[in-house]
Design a protein around this nucleic acid. Structure first.
Lengths: 336, 336
DNA sequence: GCGCAAATTGACAGCGCTGTCACACCTGTC
DNA sequence: GACAGGTGTGACAGCGCTGTCAATTTGCGC
């Protein structure tokens, strides 16, 4: 039924070389005659040879396994990043584990360390807000565990970065170009670097358009829908309510729209709203949401690729990627 | 820096027993004196012993690895199921891989087989629509690969099941109880068993309320948002448009709402809309969506547990779980 | 043509665990 | 008291691969 799987030794015997040479070919090591290499490759192909992952790990003392760590409420974000990491893993003959964590739990750092040592992980891909967990980063450096970060606050290390500050600034400038002067901002969760960048970008945008920063137009949030609802209720109850709200992510923007609808306001006629992230939901609400698109899947792919460079001891870097504004129905020119 | 990890042999030496006995304790095998077992367990604890996964796999000829296969456009669904599977894996000392597939690709079955044999997987958790891919199921049975299914169409095998037909029926009865007589249905993707069940349940509900099935009120969809928009445009252009629309999932329901809003209809005043799945988005649109909740995470956990039973050769079953209706703002009593 | 370095290949010994089998010991039976 | 049948334990040989190191071949300068 199931044909016995070919082993490395079988390939060696049939190709007429030693097992070690087959191993060299398998691992793309140098110093193998091209002729020998081709012969071995052909034999592998003929036998449908596939190395045994466990045997490889045991002998080589590395697991060929990385983990993607997340503590993120947004399934679409996590899935997209995951999908990119998976792509990179498949391309590099690595496997990936997923592992959710509560990064505010006191045992968090120890839990990650246990995961790394128990599973003999070769490295980690960190996503926000884990990518900014200083205690974890310190521990990983101490243990010498390779890692790469997605959108870390610190502009160093291996990973991938997107200029969210500039994106937020662009968004505010767009709102200003529509004639809005009272532009509010709903801040994200303080543990996320993204919340800071987007707030900074908001301030940059105001400044560049000659608008004054007004403290009462800036309210805290948590990146969650409900916090957007709460923020909107506060903002819309002001004596001079904003004519546009820039929420630090889409979920909160949806919350703002929800609260506005509840109050009978029409969007975008009575209030322009925009978000950040371009989640699938942003196109599924009415009107569809103006937001900032990040190439999450590509970011996952890049972060994993950088991680593999670190693992192999090659030079790695923080790669920059590009955002784009998605101008949709939830924003419109100010009329009055 | 990194302390050398204790090996099984170290535990054996310190506990004063043979390595094989430690192995027996580790694998919870019978025929070990309780006293010996306790001593070994204590030593393991003291040394922080953790078995080396690769060594175990290699020697035992099993990988302690399962994969979760998906081809599902809904990130929140997949993430929830994944989270449950992960829970079960952690409880049973297994690891999990994720792997997305295009189940309509001609190479699909071979790709899965390659994954199983290359990675030496111990089993698979299948999600819709992969759980209903007959060719794949046949191949897996032929290869003797254990698997468990989430919401399979066929009411047999190992896995987890939820009575979606009854849920859909309940939803229609609820709409009827609000006074609606022209209740439309947007069907899901024909490859998904769920689409059939929900349609059947819709028909059951109509029948039980003494309402006639009207072919023009039942339009095809794909489970995607855009198909909901298209379906709604068709339905709302009818001479006698429906007063309520039951879409086979939330994304399409959002599409219906979107199209209705575009036409200037107010929901729920002019049109009641409901969906199925209780995605996060269903609470983030205005008005929030009446829908059916499935305990996806628990379903993932159950499916994985059943898979482990199959792997161990224990009896397995198709476990039933319960749904619940979430009555929210998108449905209301008919007024006229 | 010789010496030395680099290129190419192979022999061998594990990596850390488990399957198989053998052995010692115990219990109860007639 | 000899024997079958069970229980608890250990010796040993790998699982399929790679690291180390040694052996052999090749290339090149003078």
């Amino acid at each position: 039924m199931t044909p016995a799987r070919a082993r490395l030794e079988d390939v060696a015997r049939i190709a007429g070389v030693s097992p070690k040479t087959v191993s060299r070919v398998l691992n793309k090591e140098p110093n193998v005659l091209q002729e020998t290499r081709d012969k071995v490759l052909a034999t592998m192909e003929a036998l449908h040879y596939r190395p045994h992952p466990s045997a490889r790990s045991l002998a080589a003392n590395r697991s060929f396994l990385i983990a993607l760590l997340y503590d993120n409420a947004s399934p679409s974000y996590t899935m997209e990043v995951q999908s990119g990491v998976l792509d990179a893993c498949n391309a590099h003959q690595y496997s990936m584990m997923m592992q959710p964590f509560d990064s505010r739990a006191p045992e968090f750092v120890d839990q990650v360390q246990a995961l790394v040592t128990d599973r003999r992980l070769d490295g980690l891909v960190l996503t926000p807000p884990i990518a900014d967990h200083e205690k974890l980063l310190a521990r990983l450096r101490e243990l010498g565990t390779p890692f790469a970060s997605v959108a870390p606050r610190s502009q160093s290390g291996a990973g991938v970065f997107l200029d969210e500050r500039q994106a937020a600034c662009d968004m505010v400038k767009y709102l200003a170009s529509l004639g809005h002067k009272r532009i509010a901002h709903v801040i994200g969760h303080p543990d996320h670097g993204a919340a800071q960048w987007r707030l900074q970008g908001y301030r940059d945008g105001l400044a560049q358009c000659g608008l004054r920063y007004a403290a009462q137009l800036v309210v805290p949030g948590t990146f969650l829908f409900d916090s957007g609802v709460a923020a909107a209720r506060k903002l819309l109850a002001l004596k001079s309510p904003p004519t546009a709200v820039f929420a630090a992510n889409d979920d909160m923007a949806a919350g703002v729209m929800w609260a506005a609808s509840e109050l009978g306001l029409a969007i975008p006629r009575d209030l322009s709203v925009c978000g950040f992230d371009d989640t699938p939901m942003s196109r599924q609400i009415w009107p569809s949401l103006t937001t900032v698109h990040q190439p999450c899947q590509e970011m996952g792919r890049i972060a994993a690729s950088q991680l593999f460079r670190v693992v192999r001891g090659n030079s790695s870097e923080l790669v920059h990627t590009a955002y784009s504004l998605c101008l949709r129905g939830s924003t419109a020119a100010l009329v009055d």
